[in-house]
Computed example of a mutant assay.
Amino acid sequence: MAATVTTPRVSARDRLLAAADELFYAEGVHTVGIDRIIEQAGVAKATLYNNFGSKEELVKAYLESRHVSMAEKITRLVERQDTPRERLLAVFDAIGELFEQPGFRGCAFVSATAEAPAGGLIEQASREYRTWANALFADLADQAGAADPQGLARQLHLLFDGASLAANLDRNPAAAVYARNAAAALLDAATAPEVAGAHREESAVL
């Protein structure tokens, strides 16, 4: 007698998040209404409010899910590298893979916060993501021996942001390659012996 294969049941909350992820990213959080989400998720409107309370809470959960997914993807690729330099540059390899995807439409956090109220949950979720990205760059820059890890992190974060914008608006995934090359040049300059020595002298004076 053949064994029966049981497909795990997907919770209503997960179905709502999956629908939100697909529709919000493809069409925008301000364009897609609650009715579209619940129709695609196959749930009642009350179920959405019972799980998230409001559309803003749902958008926040969608962004948090994107944050987790992005962090996992970048971390996996970074941890495969052998040297601190390659670990830092792997961040740009990771976003390059995202740029190559057919459905790529730019940074979800930029799109979501474009018309979001200041100080709200959407802005909060975006700020948390950006804080994580900056901390990642600072940590990797420190491991690579940068004289000023935080300063280099801010420069790398600008490249990270700019690459995503260019890849989307110009429809050019190679933006990640250009950003990686620029990041390599910045890293090499920031870790040059004369730069490190000058920074140590400046710190001693201060």
Score class of each variant (00 low, 15 high):
67 H>K: 15
77 L>A: 07
69 S>G: 10
196 A>I: 13
30 H>T: 13
186 L>Y: 09
147 A>C: 10
35 D>T: 00
110 V>Q: 08
27 E>I: 07
137 F>G: 07
114 A>Q: 13
197 G>Y: 11
19 A>M: 05
168 N>T: 03
189 A>L: 15
74 I>Q: 15
162 G>Y: 07
153 A>E: 02
42 G>M: 03
123 E>D: 12
40 Q>T: 00
58 L>H: 12
142 D>H: 01
109 F>Y: 15
71 A>C: 07
7 T>E: 15
171 R>Q: 14
144 A>I: 03
187 L>I: 11
190 A>V: 05
170 D>M: 06
127 R>A: 13
40 Q>I: 03
41 A>R: 05
75 T>G: 07
50 N>D: 06
27 E>H: 13
122 I>G: 00
142 D>W: 14
62 Y>I: 06
119 G>D: 08
137 F>C: 08
66 R>C: 12
206 L>Q: 13
113 T>L: 01
53 G>K: 08
199 H>S: 05
202 E>N: 15
41 A>Y: 00
65 S>G: 14
116 A>I: 09
33 G>A: 02
173 P>E: 11
26 A>E: 03
84 P>Q: 09
148 D>M: 03
121 L>S: 09
18 A>R: 09
111 S>Y: 10
90 A>V: 08
161 D>N: 10
66 R>S: 13
133 A>Y: 04
1 M>A: 15
61 A>P: 01
92 F>W: 02
34 I>Q: 08
140 L>I: 02
49 Y>L: 02
36 R>S: 07
139 D>G: 10
9 R>Q: 14
45 K>E: 02
195 V>C: 06
93 D>F: 03
83 T>D: 01
132 W>Y: 06
124 Q>M: 10
26 A>S: 13
129 Y>I: 05
124 Q>T: 11
72 E>I: 15
130 R>T: 05
123 E>R: 11
39 E>K: 00
77 L>N: 07
134 N>Y: 02
164 S>A: 15
38 I>K: 01
120 G>P: 07
173 P>V: 14
99 F>S: 09
127 R>T: 12
28 G>V: 04
100 E>A: 11
79 E>R: 12
23 L>S: 05
76 R>I: 04
85 R>K: 04
55 K>L: 03
165 L>C: 09
32 V>Y: 04
134 N>T: 10
166 A>I: 15
167 A>C: 07
88 L>Q: 02
30 H>M: 14
80 R>I: 01
6 T>C: 07
198 A>R: 13
3 A>C: 01
69 S>A: 15
127 R>I: 10
3 A>V: 11
165 L>K: 13
176 A>L: 13
164 S>R: 08
17 L>C: 05
171 R>K: 14
173 P>S: 08
143 Q>T: 02
4 T>E: 10
86 E>S: 14
